[in-house]
Amino acid sequence: MSRVAAVGLLTGWGEGVAALPEDAAIAAAGREVVELPRPAVTGERFRRATRECLLGVASVEAALRDAALHTSDIAGADTALVYVTAAAYGAANRSFIDAKAGATLHFPYTAPSAVPAEVAIEFSLRGPYLILIGGAAATLDGLWSADRLLAQGRCARALVVAVETFAECADLYERARWLAPRPLVEAAACALLVRDDARSARGTAPASGLDAEAARRAGSTLACGPLVAAALARAGGDEHPAVTGQWRGRRARLALDACDHARAG
């Protein structure tokens, strides 16, 4: 079994759960999208990297701060990387489609794998690797997969990273408003999972309503939602956090400490 050892959370409201308002809908004051600025990640290697790539890197840095770990602590083949997004590839796809010329250097950044690639390169992660596309339910699948990798001994720790950006495709989301309630809040989050065999004896915790709190306080963060909930659980001192997610009519639930992976259609 695994436990969440740290969560790095960046949202359009700021860093960490302390920055979250009590009610995102009120705080948004009519804004459709609450943007998350391009983070101040520096380095020649990042000169072509997209905003979402840098957000992925910044979320891992935030998780390392939360865990009081150094980059060297996670480098190598013992760290798994699971990346999830519903839509963070949209901006790069759109700008490539809109570009008149070939945009040679831009094309690789249109792939969803660009974000975890930059994360893996920056932190020298060479372990198990998974990229899932979807909203909160996909993140729960990602957490399940990370837990599995830990249980199998394929890694010593796992990073579950989610990034969502909306600003560049706001007009497209306007056409499909039913996909997610407003405000759409850009976010990047990273949960550090480690193996914790002692937790298995405690069993599955009941749902604690953190999904609703995450949605109320953060707004629609799609794939980041379960990680917002995990951050709220940690901030609240909850030893048995459970998070739930819903995406396009399908629900999923997973208790982070016991990884009870259940779904209802």
Partner: peptide, 25 residues
């Protein structure tokens, strides 16, 4: 245009009500 749309369309077409995952490695 969402990358997971075809998987959900397929699942609906097949009447598959279990987990629907899109992998993009």
């Amino acid at each position: 245009g969402l990358y997971d749309s075809p998987a959900h369309i397929l699942a609906r077409h097949l009447g598959a009500g279990g987990p629907v995952l899109t992998v993009s490695t």
